[in-house]
Amino acid sequence: MAAAAAAGAGPEMVRGQVFDVGPRYTNLSYIGEGAYGMVCSAYDNVNKVRVAIKKISPFEHQTYCQRTLREIKILLRFRHENIIGINDIIRAPTIEQMKDVYIVQDLMETDLYKLLKTQHLSNDHICYFLYQILRGLKYIHSANVLHRDLKPSNLLLNTTCDLKICDFGLARVADPDHDHTGFLTEYVATRWYRAPEIMLNSKGYTKSIDIWSVGCILAEMLSNRPIFPGKHYLDQLNHILGILGSPSQEDLNCIINLKARNYLLSLPHKNKVPWNRLFPNADSKALDLLDKMLTFNPHKRIEVEQALAHPYLEQYYDPSDEPIAEAPFKFDMELDDLPKEKLKELIFEETARFQPGYRS
């Protein structure tokens, strides 16, 4: 834990890192770190609560700039109880001085990944967590956004079992017609939660990839272990087919990539493993919904509104309290091709509203 900075004593240090967030945020305490930044909790002297502050230093890398800009653009436009918001952003007053960006968010005690390492969940908890994931996802999908990296560590939890989806750095506007060349190379989302079509096709992607990830998360809540822990690309596919069985001819016809289709045709026939054999203690309604989410063919996979209306979630289902976005989200430009200098300018502009004396 960093010592509390005395008023006016300059930035606090946390594990050798400068955290320049005073005077409003003090009493910093280390939480963890990701690929390009550290997260601390801090005391907000204005709202009198502890908050989470993520320090991001992305400006050396085009990919990190892209992810940072995506996350900020999306989260500043989203407003939903099951999606983490941005409360404040701290950065230098000029673009030349801006080396880091500090993002202030609600402090959540833990995440689903940490929880599943230590606790076996009751059916009631599984049901409530799944409902909140789908409630947040309904809003995301209504904005025409794909999260693309749903996994237990991106689901934040607090002691009252509130759940918030975080990390929109890989999110995209849904565009089933656009052929994202190089899709697989830039697709760094965790393999275990990846839909089979991501490994088999490169053309376009749809909201059904997020539903697949939610199915993987439900299976993990039922058993405290990942359902498809593939060691590499082909191993991942083999794990999936080992449980779902061989795809039907109709399902194979959806695979545009001939090499991928021929690979699947070359494999020995596998039978589907019954879900109640894998999860003998699970609620039968939970397994019915799991089956509809972990469907090989993305066109037959359940959609988020149908999933919310499934009998497993009937005690929570309330369409009048499951809000959607006001308007579909649009990125003005494809960020993939922009140089990091341009992305830095866009991050600077996007964060201006939090600067003292800002006038829109």
Rank of each mutant, 00 (worst) to 15 (best):
L289T: 05
Q315L: 14
K54I: 08
M199I: 14
V188Y: 02
Y30L: 12
A282D: 14
L346K: 11
L134C: 02
V49A: 00
Y113Q: 09
C127A: 08
S142A: 01
F329D: 05
L28T: 01
Y113F: 14
E322Y: 00
A171I: 10
T295E: 04
S208L: 06
I89V: 13
D106M: 02
L287I: 11
M333T: 01
L234D: 09
K54N: 11
H80D: 02
Q249P: 09
P274S: 12
P58Q: 15
T160R: 11
Y205L: 03
D177E: 14
R67E: 11
D167G: 02
K117E: 00
I72D: 02
I324S: 09
V104S: 05
D177W: 05
R24M: 02
N144I: 15
K300V: 11
K330H: 00
N253S: 07
D210I: 08
Y312W: 07
N262I: 15
R50M: 15
R172A: 06
P319H: 07
P226H: 14
L134R: 04
I240K: 05
I256M: 08
N253T: 11
L115R: 00
S266E: 03
G242E: 06
R24H: 13
N45L: 13
L222R: 10
A195R: 10
D318L: 01
E186V: 13
L294G: 03
A9T: 12
F228T: 01
L155F: 04
Y193D: 04
I31S: 09
L200C: 06
K54V: 10
L107D: 12
G204E: 11
I209E: 12
L130E: 01
Y263M: 04
P176E: 09
R15V: 08
A2N: 02
E81A: 07
G8V: 15
D175N: 12
L313Q: 14
K342C: 04
G85N: 06
L156R: 07
L69C: 09
A4V: 13
V188W: 09
W212A: 10
R77F: 11
F348C: 11
A195Y: 00
D251S: 09
L116W: 03
Y25F: 14
I89H: 11
P339H: 11
N297V: 10
A307V: 12
E250Q: 03
L222W: 03
S223H: 03
K231A: 04
Q236C: 06
H299P: 07
D336K: 08
G85Q: 12
L69W: 04
F354T: 07
V21N: 09
K114D: 09
R353C: 09
T94G: 06
I240A: 05
P311M: 00
A35F: 05
E250S: 00
S153N: 11
I90V: 12
Y131T: 02
D20T: 11
R70I: 01
H310G: 01
F348Q: 12
R67W: 13
E349D: 14
M38T: 11
P152H: 13
I211R: 06
D251N: 11
Y316G: 00
L234Q: 14
S41T: 14
C254F: 12
M98S: 12
S266Q: 01
A325N: 03
D167L: 01
K203D: 11
Q236S: 10
I211K: 11
S57A: 12
Y312R: 08
I324P: 02
F78R: 02
P319V: 12
S223M: 10
N201F: 04
K270E: 00
I56G: 15
R135H: 08
I83Y: 00
L200P: 00
F168M: 11
T190D: 07
K55F: 04
Q17P: 12
V145K: 02
L289S: 06
A282L: 01
T68A: 15
C40E: 15
L200N: 09
I140Q: 09
Y25V: 02
P328E: 00
L278H: 08
I72M: 13
D336G: 00
P11R: 12
C127L: 09
Y43N: 15
Y358A: 09
S320N: 01
R24I: 02
E303C: 02
S41H: 07
I211H: 11
L308G: 02
Y102E: 04
L241A: 04
E71S: 14
I74M: 02
P247L: 09
Y317P: 00
L290W: 05
G32Y: 03
S142H: 03
K207G: 09
I198R: 11
C40T: 07
R24S: 13
E250T: 08
I89K: 02
K54C: 00
L265V: 04
P58T: 15
D283L: 03
L244V: 09
A352Y: 03
F59M: 13
T63P: 15
L75Q: 15
H141C: 07
F129R: 10
C65I: 14
V304W: 13
A35H: 08
S153R: 13
F78A: 12
C127W: 00
A260I: 01
Y316D: 09
F329S: 03
I126V: 12
S29Y: 01
V49R: 10
R301Y: 04
S202L: 09
L237M: 11
P58D: 13
R24N: 05
L69G: 07
S213C: 14
L69V: 14
N238Y: 14
R77N: 06
T295C: 07
D337V: 13
D251E: 13
S208R: 11
N82M: 06
R353D: 03
E345D: 15
H232I: 02
V39A: 14
K259M: 14
R50H: 10
W192R: 15
H310L: 14
